[in-house]
Each structure stands twice: as structure tokens, then as C-alpha cells.
């Protein structure tokens, strides 16, 4: 009964390769630059204020600040209101996190989700040519 167990020495290299592979394959997005359009978002328990509801096409940077007491999330949906274009979770009270979107012209839907649940406080966001 001294049957040797199968060897699995390759577990670590395999995992590392996987992690690095995923990192390399995944697309990067540029952080805020001076040519970008910055939109400040203020999320509270019952409000989702955007400094602008319009932006020219290109890189739009949403700076999401949580002024409430619950953790919040911010979503940018396509015009259908279900396809997620970008989102950020875990925006704790007093914290500002960025959502960067490469936006083509068209309508979008933004949503703050105080309490990290539900459909959120939604509004239409327009990207012009």
C-alpha cells in the first residue's frame, strides 16, 4: 500500500504563469491626463450628483467621492441600462475612487448605489462627438 501519490511540482510555476498571463493579456486603460474630461461624482444616501451630465467623446474620468455614511458603488451603463461599461465598488465614506471610460458618442446611464445594493440612483449621461 505504499502507492506513491502523483507529483504536482508544477503547481507554483503554473499558477504564476496564469497570474502573469492574465495581467499581461488584460488591457490597460490610461489614468487621468490633462486632455481628459473630468466629471466629479458626489454620492450620498439619497443623491448622485454629477458635475456635468455631458462630455465630448474620448476619455472621461469620473472621480467618485462618497459623502454618505454607507459604502457606495458607481456604474456607467450602456444606453440599455444593463450592460456595464465600467464600475467601481468599495467606495467607502470619505474615499474618492476613479472610473475611467473610453466613451464613444451616445447615451449612457450612470448610477450610484449607496449601500451597494439595488438599481441605484440613475441618470442619463450624454457623450457628444
Amino acid at each position: 500500500m505504499t502507492r506513491p501519490m502523483p507529483r504536482r511540482r508544477s503547481a507554483v510555476p503554473a499558477t504564476l504563469t496564469l497570474v502573469l498571463g492574465v495581467l499581461l493579456l488584460s488591457a490597460c486603460a490610461p489614468n487621468a491626463a490633462s486632455t481628459d474630461t473630468a466629471v466629479a461624482v458626489r454620492s450620498t444616501a439619497d443623491e448622485c450628483e454629477l458635475s456635468s451630465t455631458e462630455a465630448p467623446s474620448g476619455t472621461v474620468v469620473f472621480d467618485v467621492t462618497n459623502d454618505g455614511t454607507d459604502a457606495t458603488e458607481f456604474y456607467v451603463y450602456a444606453a440599455d441600462g444593463t450592460t456595464i461599461i465600467a464600475e467601481v465598488e468599495n467606495v467607502g465614506p470619505g474615499i474618492t475612487r476613479q472610473v475611467v471610460v473610453e466613451a464613444a458618442a451616445g447615451d449612457y446611464v450612470t448610477a450610484c448605489k449607496p449601500g451597494m445594493t439595488g438599481d441605484g440612483i440613475r441618470a442619463t449621461f450624454t457623450v457628444t462627438d
Binding site: S26, C28, A29, P30, N31, A33, I84, Q98
Partner: peptide, 14 residues
């Protein structure tokens, strides 16, 4: 802090 952020899709896929 760097010039490149991670796209939303990439972060979710990771």
C-alpha cells in the same frame, strides 16, 4: 499612481 490604470473588464477578468 502611475500613468496606466486597469480597465474595468481586465480587473473583473483577473
Amino acid at each position: 499612481l502611475g500613468p496606466q490604470g486597469l480597465s474595468f473588464e481586465a480587473q473583473e477578468i483577473i
